[in-house]
């Protein structure tokens, strides 16, 4: 549906709905923090950014002139390789998967004794892996600066710049 539609407004709306549904799926997978971030940022903020960009660029996609089979082939080959790679992975929901064995028990026991807050995700995010979060803040800062620099030159020559929410 998202692939075929040529009205970009519908495409953006559908991708927002998809994002919200995926947030619901994250709740069922026990990732509540991720779910509300996805709902707020993925479904909310991203959709607003897209709508802002659509308002500035127009929302009709031109029909593709010739269909080449090449992208389809590339996609199928890639998917086949990745699905072949699944053979080596642990089954869904298994408690003894390698991902759960190394630092995870330490984080869970350490959150109680070292950090003292109930939410393990917050403890890992802000304390154990605080430098990751610092780097993330750096990325967002850089992106904000980049958006401002890109859009400021555009708005400069106008007499009254319109309200611009793409940043």
């Amino acid at each position: 549906m998202i692939i075929r539609l040529q009205n970009l407004l519908s495409v953006v709306m559908l991708s927002g709905v998809f994002s919200l549904l995926s947030a619901g799926m994250f709740v069922t997978l026990d990732a509540v923090d991720v779910a509300f971030t996805e709902a707020a940022v993925g479904a909310g903020l991203t959709t607003i950014l897209f709508l802002g960009a659509l308002a500035l660029t127009g929302s009709a996609e031109k029909a593709p002139r010739q269909r080449s089979p090449l992208p389809l082939i590339v996609m199928a080959v890639l998917a086949a390789i990745l699905i072949y790679g699944v053979i080596g992975l642990p089954p869904f929901g298994s408690a003894d998967a390698p991902a759960h064995r190394y630092v995870m028990p330490e984080y869970i026991s350490g959150t109680q004794t070292q950090i003292g807050i109930p939410n393990i995700v917050s403890a890992v995010l802000a304390s154990y892996r605080g430098f990751d979060t610092l780097g993330e803040t750096g990325v967002i800062f850089t992106a904000g600066i980049g958006v401002i620099l890109l859009l400021r030159r555009r708005l400069a020559p106008r007499v009254s710049p319109p309200e611009d929410d793409a940043g």
Binding site: D33, T37, V41, L45, A99, Y107, V121, L125, I140, T142
Partner: peptide, 21 residues
């Protein structure tokens, strides 16, 4: 496992930053 949750929280926010750019 809380560790993937943390990584993906970071990734969601970085994803919005790249989308904005």
């Amino acid at each position: 496992n809380p560790l993937p949750h943390v990584l993906i929280l970071t990734a969601i926010v970085v994803g919005v930053a790249t989308t904005a750019i």
